[in-house]
Design a binder for these strands. Structure first.
Lengths: 401, 401
DNA sequence: GTAATAAGTCAAGACAATTGACTTAATAAG
DNA sequence: CTTATTAAGTCAATTGTCTTGACTTATTAC
């Protein structure tokens, strides 16, 4: 008699959802356009002048926006432009990588205020958790020393680490990433910091960073091909990060390529891991990054061999991404040394023909992303900020949070 | 002095957006769950009983929902379940294929009420437009003869044809599809029918159909791998059809495969077009569909050869889809004869290992979709219905329509 | 100097969800 | 059989947020 099957339905919304959405739309418009007057905002958002005025007033009270000097532009009363206040909100970003962890404090417009780094001891979560929590606490206290009311304006902690999540592991894992992937990191960080914690994979974090301050700024459809120790794609679809049903969308490094009669994951052919193997280098070596940068800029032959092979695979990956996602642009980013990235981009071109070749294109098909080893940590921090301030469907719903 | 760069911003929302969203949420909940009482709806949507009552009353007045017999379930006043009224809304779906065009009239729950088919004469749009408009007019008048107020309840016309759109063509195109793809079909259909017209590629239409009445019913993350004359993927992401920046997302048939030292699009290896070529058959032959079905069910050797090769490519495609989209399930659909689809599905298994292999999976990784040659036309009709009644971010915004 | 134009405010109004008390109708318990 | 309990659903008043239209202010064009 009683129905066991649970009812599946989407959440409704109400006035608060409306208001929250409109606030986010204002913030987004200011982020993308730099500065706008109330009248500009009203025209751009289809809201009335009065509504915009009310919301801007509220945002100003909350310390998220501030006015600039009025500007005269032709007839009529001069307009007062508004812009985002960087110190209106902060977030902490945390990158957990194989042998290192990094934490940053980032403000509303994506500027990095504090950086901290620590080596991750072998042993995975059992020994690493303390290192991480200490690092976060360090960043947090240093932030408090730099800006006013940092704790009150801290919207959350974003963590980023290599994916995939929740999948049966492969077994060969010298860096304990599998242990980290299975570890209840979210709960541990929430309990250890008292903050609102989010988790994404490193490619997604890189994409979030590119959208906030990089090449994907203001774009609604962009894919970041992330070449790091592994390979992944961070997907910006319809203006939001897309994570798939289980948070693993974009794990393109696990795509199998068939060549010479055997199948190999892309990740084993074109990632930094494959380069390290090619060079018989130790990934834990702290000087490796600089050495590879040096070799790449000198056009070293052993690097070149790898670059040629990797570029072919990446060229194909970009073609595939264009074909299945139809983005406005593809952004090549990662934790590789800058000289290597430049060599790779040069070697990748010309791109394979694809549906991205269309008349009237405005953006390049392929663009370089941030060449900053900290970009994943920055993107991790951008996660909570985006969640708190960007317009998104989920944020209008009553079941949001 | 004057700013040439246009202001980019997302649209705000207001009460109407809220109300429209909540109406859509109700309809969606009833579609997914079959029937629900007002109290059920209130719990599932996080809205109050009163709000749900008001909206349901309005939907009932509009003829979109109706009440069922009250049911007693334990203590308390019996609940009155509501369900969707199929004849509450209709849409016309139009499939434009290489040598045939089909039109259907579909109701709110996806039932087909009228079907019509016509051959497309050679010559592309210049001669085909009249055939198509006549076909639509025929379906429309027959619909008017079957149900009351069909014109008033007609929400739009959806068209589906092979993609991609807006891309420089390949040249070798015996079926004039390139001419169709460049033709201003939307304007022509709007002018010729006076209806609200939408356009999508055939894979997207198939996915829309699967979501309304097929294997993707109620799923928010599903990919339909469509094997027809070409190959494409219809993407259901976050509960909505994803089209990409230019409406070409999912055109996986154009993905290049590298084998034997040369690159070939997937479409040239595993589509029906490749089968026709393999069999030296004429695609315009009206008896071909039945003949292939017959051959496939008898295990004919020439078919088997193709099936084995195609299955290998499709197995890889499914693996790739799982890897980049992380869907809840992949649905294999298309316009292939049923016996061939069954042979293909059998030959595809077992699937390649991927991130889709996770503990606690509920749905099969691969499911067969509708084996109906009309499914693309049905999906085309499902487009306008989805646009009018499904919850979606765009529908709350002031710039919707 | 005056008209035109544009930014922005004020106060009243409209719309849609919320709230809390109430009614209705069933089962469970004594 | 009577009464308490539970759940569905309604009523009327309230609240929150956007909209409307008139108004004020500040500037340029003629």
């Amino acid at each position: 008699m009683n129905d066991v099957r649970p009812i599946r339905a989407k959440s409704g919304t109400n006035h608060e959802g409306t208001s929250a959405h409109n606030r986010r739309v204002m913030i987004d418009a200011l982020r993308v356009n730099g500065q706008l007057s109330r009248a500009d905002l009203a025209r751009a958002t289809w809201l009335t002048k009065q509504t915009v005025s009310n919301i801007i007033e509220e945002l100003e009270r909350d310390g998220l926006v501030c006015s600039q000097e009025p500007v005269r532009k032709g007839r009529g009363q001069p307009s007062t432009p508004y812009r985002l206040v960087p110190e209106g909100a902060f977030a902490i970003g945390l990158q957990i990588d194989r042998h290192v962890t990094r934490a940053v404090a980032v403000d509303l417009i994506g500027s990095v205020l504090v950086r901290a780094e620590a080596g991750l001891p072998p042993g995975g979560p059992s020994t690493g958790t303390k290192v991480i929590l200490d690092l976060v606490a360090d960043v947090r206290s240093r932030l408090a020393g730099i800006v006013q009311q940092s704790e009150k304006r801290l919207v959350g902690l974003g963590a980023a680490m290599p994916g995939p999540f929740g999948v049966a592991g492969s077994g060969d894992d010298p860096w304990m990433m599998e242990a980290w992937q299975k570890f209840p990191l979210l709960d541990t960080l929430t309990a250890g910091t008292g903050l609102d914690v989010g988790l994404q994979n490193d490619a997604a974090a890189a994409a979030t960073a590119e959208r906030m301050v990089g090449a994907a700024h203001g774009l609604d459809h962009a894919v970041c091909l992330f070449v790091g120790y592994g390979i992944g794609a961070g997907l910006i679809l319809n203006g939001e990060l897309y994570c798939g049903a289980n948070g693993n969308a974009g794990e393109i490094g696990m795509a199998l390529l068939f060549a010479d009669g055997k199948s190999t994951p892309l990740e084993h052919r074109a990632s930094l891991a494959s380069l390290y193997q090619h060079l018989s280098a130790d990934p834990a070596d702290p000087g490796l990054h600089a050495r590879i940068n040096d070799l790449a800029s000198r056009g070293d032959q052993s690097i070149e061999t790898w670059v040629e092979a990797a570029a072919a695979d990446l060229r194909w990956s970009i073609h595939l991404i264009e074909t299945v996602f139809d983005p406005e642009t593809v952004i090549l980013c990662g934790s590789a040394p800058e000289a290597l990235v430049n060599r790779l981009i040069a070697a990748i071109g010309p791109l394979l023909p694809s549906i991205a070749e269309r008349p009237g294109r405005m953006l390049p098909r392929l663009q370089p992303g941030m060449a900053d080893p900290w970009s994943v940590a920055i993107g991790a921090a951008a996660g909570p900020i985006s969640r708190a301030f960007d317009p998104r469907f989920a944020a209008i719903l009553k079941d949001f949070l």
